[in-house]
Design a binder for these strands. Structure first.
Lengths: 209, 209
DNA sequence: ATAGTAATGTTGCAATTGCAACATTTTAGA
DNA sequence: TCTAAAATGTTGCAATTGCAACATTACTAT
């Protein structure tokens, strides 16, 4: 996965951030972030820490929409923060860089090659985000739990070129990702295992087909 | 929705396209496009015509993944064309502009303001695509057909600021979009109507709550 | 105008799933 | 090390859904 500052030297990064008038912000664990940037049009980069974007359902359910780890970016334009029912919460002490959107665009007029690289990285990251969502949609549009699982396995195994899949989340979160009931998913995984399609060792799943 | 050439004059557009070394391509109705651009890293803009991105399922089902109308863009980096099971088909005679990705990035070094505008538009379009997919995911993660419908209504009605919803597709396509069985959807729409939540007049749905 | 095709409406039924309730295991923090 | 909380495994059952089959209506091209 591309990082916003890939192929930009530390020195040029400093220079770039100065030109973009980037602001560094600090948040304590469990602090809400959205209120700070509400109304503004910015891009944020998580330097250290870990942020969750959470939606509070009408029925009182809380769903994790997105998780922002170190070096990931979010944006008021594209991070589904738009809904009033969303919160951004720091799960750890967090250090952020905030860049106003307008500065990014204006900055482009410069001829510095690190600008070019920066824009290239940004375009790449946005493209990746689209692909990530395309993949999830491909999975969610399958009609049975079994087919959702198999589609997920197919995508991940193709991406990594391996029959071994290491789940990047707990099974509870996995069920959320697939938008199915956890127990029903557990049942179906057991079926797949009993039928000899897969092997499960805690979070490592091996495809036997 | 933003267009790639928004706020760029016709004259500057010509200039821009020359600098980007854009290629204009023509395709006959039902011609396949992917073979022409396979392996290359390009952005395409549909000038006239209409393209469908179609996936051929393992089970032999064909699903329309994306529809590209006039003035929309697609890209090898982000248009889910990656899978070998995908086709791009012109449904009408089609005129395309193809721009190599590298040219876009290199072009950024220029100081022309229409470049700035171009990049801004491109970023906006990619952001819109992310939001569009976020919305669909929000809908697909609802667990019942009723809740999917209601979420769809909520999103569209908020976007347009109106209780009147004009379906931009046939009911058959609508069911595909929600990833549910058409007949089951039809049943649920009838339920919602009978319970007085909505009113349906062909493709116009009015929310009564 | 009309024939042929696609879209829509309807319904019974079987399969899948969500839900609830509970036991067991794992994890994280004091 | 111990304890509380979170995650996981399991299963019966009711609700929802997909599927199939069919009738009806709306489009489209000749």
């Amino acid at each position: 996965m591309v990082n916003l500052f890939d192929k930009i030297s530390e020195k040029n990064k400093e220079k770039l951030l100065r030109m973009l008038e980037a602001n560094t912000l600090f948040f304590k664990k469990n602090a809400p972030i959205l209120s700070t940037i509400k109304g503004e049009n910015v891009i944020g980069i998580v330097l250290t820490g870990y942020i969750q974007i959470v939606r509070n359902d009408d029925n009182g359910n809380r769903t994790i929409i997105e998780e922002l780890e170190e070096n990931t970016i979010f944006g008021t334009l594209f991070s589904s923060i738009t809904g009033e029912d969303c919160e951004m919460i720091c799960r750890e002490d967090t250090k952020l860089i905030i860049i106003e959107y307008n500065r990014i665009i204006i900055g482009v007029q410069s001829n510095y090659t690190f600008y070019t690289q920066f824009i290239q990285n940004l375009l790449q990251i946005l493209s990746d985000k689209i692909n990530e969502r395309n993949d999830r949609i491909k999975i969610l549009t399958k009609k049975t739990i079994r087919n959702k699982l198999l589609e997920y396995f197919k995508i991940v195994s193709k991406r990594n070129g391996s029959k071994n899949i290491y789940l990047p989340f707990t099974f509870t979160e996995f069920a959320d990702y697939l938008a199915v009931d956890r127990c029903a998913m557990s049942r179906e995984l057991k079926n797949l295992k009993d039928e000899g399609f897969i092997e499960i060792k805690s979070k490592k799943i091996t495809l036997l087909y």
